[in-house]
Amino acid sequence: MAGTGKAHLRSETDGLLRVENLVVEYKSPGGGAVRAVSDVSFDIVAGETVSVVGESGCGKSTLAKGVMQLVPTASGTVALNGTDLTKLKGEALRRARPNIQMIFQDSISSLDPHLKVRALVEQPLKVWGRGTDEERRQKVDELLRSVNLDPEIVGDRKPAEFSGGQCQRISIARALSIEPQVLVCDEPVSSLDVSIQSQILNIIQDMKKRYGLSLLFISHDLSVVRAISDRIVVMYLGKICEVSTPDKLASAPAHHYTHALVSAVPVPDPKLGRRKAILQGEPPSPTNPPSGCRFRTRCPAATEKCAAEEPQLREVSPGQFVACHHPRA
């Protein structure tokens, strides 16, 4: 896997969020550093949903945290509206944050258990001194209603009284209260039941339209991001394998890893029978990644060239970029 390279980036003037050559390192107990995100570039244009998919440990959540500046970035740039967030510190960074907000996988623990729902949703507005008491109250009610919660019923309850799906809706209302341009969603539905997943995905879609949001959506499940994304970025061991449209990704994945991911999605149709798991084993340790293409140790098409040379992202068909020496036809 690959890759470095920026062939998939669009013109600089179009991008709302533009991440270039981002590197995020964690110190490992042995003294060295683990590169969780290794030279990753991508961009989001206004109104677009870009999803990042990959297995546990591929660096997708770290990428989201790096974009949010929640972890220190070793190098690279994260430009929001042309301002490089990695260069900002302290108050300047704080002032930039209302434009980019985040929701998390575990919505219950991401909400302060002592606060009532109204206070939780109002808090960002208070912190930023937006509106009068009455204006804020109206705004909070409107937000709660837009995520299908009745403010009269839920307003004075605390997070512990709600299910995971309901807490995720409260988190969405809270994140959107200060009207960010970009919403970063880190596995927002992966701890929820299938039937509730669809409810949340619909709400995220509705809110995107209503507030003109751009989304960075992190998930390990391709089927979840299939219908909601404009662009999908597939990551493996801290690097990008493939950048593609959802249609191409589902019908004609070019990277062997993407193909394996697609075929691992359980299909609710017994006629298809048991499908062989294509991918065996688990990703190697990021402390000592394989040379060349990082996927080569599990790749069915790996050759000597893959060990020697790191593939670069290149366009194989319009809108489909792949970092592989031997892409699938």
Binding site: G165, Q199, N202, V224, R226, A227, V265, V267
Partner: peptide
């Protein structure tokens, strides 16, 4: 039927609305 419909599928087309089961 509602459970089956609510599963996100790779064969869905872009922009399809998920068929969620309303209520709880």
């Amino acid at each position: 039927e509602a459970l089956l419909n609510s599963i996100p599928k790779l064969t869905d087309t872009s922009g399809t609305r998920m068929r969620a089961i309303p209520g709880s």
